[in-house]
Amino acid sequence: MIDVKHLSKAFGDNLVLDNIDQHIYPGEKVVIIGPSGSGKSTFLRCLNLLETPTAGTITFDGAVVTDPKADIDKIRQQMGMVFQHFNLFPNMTVRKNITLAPVRTKLMGQAEADDTATALLKRVGLEEKADAYPAQLSGGQKQRIAIVRALAMKPKLMLFDEPTSALDPEMVGEVLEVMKELAQDGMTMVVVTHEMGFAREVGSRVLFMDEGHVMEEGKPEDIFSRPQNPRLQEFLSKVLH
């Protein structure tokens, strides 16, 4: 579904991603773990071109994302992204947050978009918040709505960048629950997270990133029970204890 070849990204002299090759298959749930500053966010943001790669090619469903002539808006419509800090639009109601993109990109009419919003909000248990403004919501509610907002575009792939890191601990569960349901529904997902329980339970493949490289990858049970790379062993011993 996504093919990444020789992907490098530098900020000035700082080489953040160093020649990464990856392939993500339809239906996969790829979980990316690794220490802070290792390039996880940058990797995710290169996939939908929020960061422009310094070198390499990314292909999504046959479209070359990194081609300067690519219709990046069209490509992004099929890749949802959920941010650590939600990034809901504070000047709009929840309903408008959800329906703005589908309507403006002519994916749906307003009526259909409103119905979609209602149905999705019901799925995450927030239908009564449709007319609220983001400022009136808790962090967990905001993140569930951010997920719904991305889903309203009917994406083929969802990118999550530490979706629970900015949440109070008691709200982490409700967001992970929504993500698990999404995984069960067969969505292709790439998730950067520090929630090792989620990685173990939901991930079909785990990537361990460090200093711009994918140092180790494999099935969750292998990564967590039989880590090979010493950096991974060190990382796991820190986060699991």
């Binding site: 939908n48 929020l50 639009f89 709009m92 993109a101 403006r104 991305a150």
Partner: peptide, 30 residues
Amino acid sequence: LDPGQMEAGRSLGLGYLDTMRFVVIPQAFK
């Protein structure tokens, strides 16, 4: 304005002008 607002708009597939018009400018005006 938080650059995350522009990024959120663009990541949904909204164009630059639409994101400016519906997301960035109304907040900046206030």
